[in-house]
Amino acid sequence: MNAMLDAAWAVFVRELRLALRRPAEATQPLVFYCVLALLFPLGLAAQDVGLRAFAPAIVWVSALLAALLGIERLFRADVDDGTLEQWLLADVPFPMLVGAKLAAQWLLIAAPLIVAAPLIALALNLQPQAIGVLLLGLLFGTPVLVFSGGFAAALTVGAPRAGLLIPILVLPMMCPALIFGAGAVRAAQVGLSVEGPLYFLAAMMVLSLTLLPWAAAGALRNALE
């Protein structure tokens, strides 16, 4: 058990170290997210009252797209240099290692998005009382985005031309998160109960965290064979 956790921790730390070696690449999702969210108001009329109504959707769609940015390269380097072979052969459950890698990716990709979300929400005129719900929703929802993106990356890792396929693969998995995440914020905006959608999001997070590493590991094993 201890050896298993040690191995998972080693994978986790390695991901963070690799990100630190390439800081420009690691900050890309955050920059993309901010630019995307801040471009939306420019498409509307100045002082448009509709902005507030669209704010939840804008934040969530921006987060979704930022999480997809570069996700297809997630496993490619490890497959190309043979590291994944060593993961498969180690005396540790392979899904656990994949899960550790995805968890590290969540910290690298999604955590900055959550931290930046309040600022973007203010820029989009979101009511202050809805910001807390937005953050909670992102906290539950972004693991779903990152883990399903990771699953799609694992599915396409053996097919070099499949980059275009990833949006189609992740759309069905991400749309419930988008619906509940943005829905919770809208409910908060009009003073409705936000518990329902948040519980739903949390349940989806648990489902993704437990099932998708196994599915991604299976897909990777298949691609390596």
Binding site: L155, T156, A159, A162, L165, I168, L169
Partner: peptide, 10 residues
Amino acid sequence: LGVIGLNQAY
């Protein structure tokens, strides 16, 4: 469409 596309990609 995902299944069809994935099948074509390999």
